[in-house]
Amino acid sequence: MSGLIPLTVRELKKWYRSPVFFFVGLIQPFFWIGLFGSAFSGGGGAFGSIALDNAKNYITFVIAGVLTTTALFTGMFSGINIIWDRRLGTLSRLLASPISRSSIVFSKVISSIARIMVQVVILIAAALVIPNGLEFANGFTLFSAFVIVSATLMIAFIFSSLFSLIAVKMRNMQTIFGISNLVSLPLMFASFALFPKAFMAGWLESVAVWNPVSWSAEAMRNVIINGSAISSSLMYSTLGYLFYLAILTLAVLVLTYYVTEKEIRE
């Protein structure tokens, strides 16, 4: 895919050279954990722990969901950058050079994933250091690391690509903001990312089981809460979530490649 490396380097340089964008991206995770995570930390006790899938506290429960929704919201920006390139005329120039069309979109997806991974590391660090924060009560295994990294990578890829696809034919910044908000909120709330299943209405739960945000959050949650004590049934269900995510990642990869190679216009 010619042009992918130089274009990705460009995106990363633009990111870390833009101080506001860079620091907002770094600080945002602290708000998620510090404010949102602490808001529900009062409901402890045995009942609370059972409702929270046996997590020691709400932050331990919610961290997997927060990692996933961070990927969702940061992924939104990869589409916006395509529209900027179109408006500034950069896209037109890129399209007149002999690079692969899809490299334009995939460079933004990769840089978006890189941003998300940095945020994920900060989120976990923040969750570990705050009082009554993240506890790996049953240890942190190689399998836990594999699940967290692969689920984050896949969910980051899926959302960054999908939001980029929306932007492929779009010229208006307001429209993409509108669509992104419209899509993001139901994806976040109709999932098991932030709230325990026990609190959910039956109809919402039956929607949430098909939501990739739930797959990612549940997979990570299983290994964060259970660590080395994970039961074989939970391990299979975790691997099942990763399998669904892998299938969706592959489908989105093929779709993004096909659509951008054929359809991207200045």
């Binding site: 460009r10 340089k13 633009k14 050279r17 833009s18 500034l88 005329g89 950069t90 037109s92 120039r93 007149a96």
Partner: peptide, 9 residues
Amino acid sequence: PQDLTADED
């Protein structure tokens, strides 16, 4: 091109 397309950053 007509536009200034070089990346400012």
